[in-house]
Amino acid sequence: MTRVPPRWVTPGRLTRVGTTPDYRFTLANERTFLAWIRTALALVGGGIAAERTHLAPRWLVVALLVCGAVVACRALWRWMRCELAIRLGRELPAAHFHTIVAVTVAAAALTGLVLALVPA
């Protein structure tokens, strides 16, 4: 009998829920998690670089750093939800966050372009 897991499942407790899946699925889920972490690191690195070089307004630096933190937290949340679904043989949860990140990054790029083109 499979126990129903709590809403928040720590990575260590995931192994006690459901059945052990094919390792390829678990590793693919992990690779996706790591890709999101790279995105978060890029956002944080961009925010730190912009702050250090004084080339961007303070609000843009803060926005990049906050977005990096949100993406990192969301990456962990998504990884655990997908891992749980895989272990329980359920459908993977819908992924709407990709659209939010894409629009945010595009907006940041356009803002950077405008700032670069406007004479100082």
Rank of each mutant, 00 (worst) to 15 (best):
M1E: 15
T2L: 14
R3F: 15
V4G: 09
V4N: 14
P5W: 05
P6I: 04
W8N: 11
W8Q: 09
V9R: 01
V9E: 02
T10L: 12
T10M: 09
P11Y: 04
G12K: 02
R13H: 12
R13M: 12
L14K: 01
L14R: 00
T15K: 12
V17H: 13
G18S: 09
G18P: 08
T20C: 08
T20L: 14
P21K: 03
P21I: 00
P21V: 06
P21G: 07
P21F: 05
Y23T: 08
Y23K: 02
R24Q: 10
F25A: 05
L27N: 06
A28Y: 02
R31W: 11
R31H: 11
T32E: 10
T32P: 01
F33N: 02
F33W: 07
F33M: 07
L34S: 09
A35T: 10
W36R: 11
W36C: 05
T39L: 14
A40R: 00
A40G: 12
L41P: 01
A42L: 14
A49M: 03
E51M: 07
R52W: 07
R52A: 14
H54N: 11
H54T: 09
L55N: 06
P57D: 12
R58F: 13
R58W: 10
L60Y: 02
L60M: 12
V61Y: 04
V61K: 00
V61H: 01
V62L: 11
V62T: 13
A63R: 03
L64I: 00
L65D: 06
V66Y: 07
G68F: 06
A72Q: 00
C73Q: 04
C73E: 07
L76M: 07
W77V: 13
W77L: 14
R78I: 09
W79A: 08
R81H: 15
E83C: 07
L84Y: 03
G89P: 08
R90S: 15
E91P: 03
A94E: 14
A94M: 13
F97W: 11
F97D: 15
F97N: 04
T99M: 10
V101G: 06
A102T: 06
V103M: 11
T104L: 13
V105Y: 01
V105L: 13
V105T: 05
A106Q: 04
A107Q: 04
A108F: 13
A108D: 00
A109F: 12
A109S: 11
L110R: 01
G112S: 02
G112C: 08
V114C: 02
L115K: 00
A116F: 09
A116I: 02
L117P: 00
L117I: 05
P119S: 01
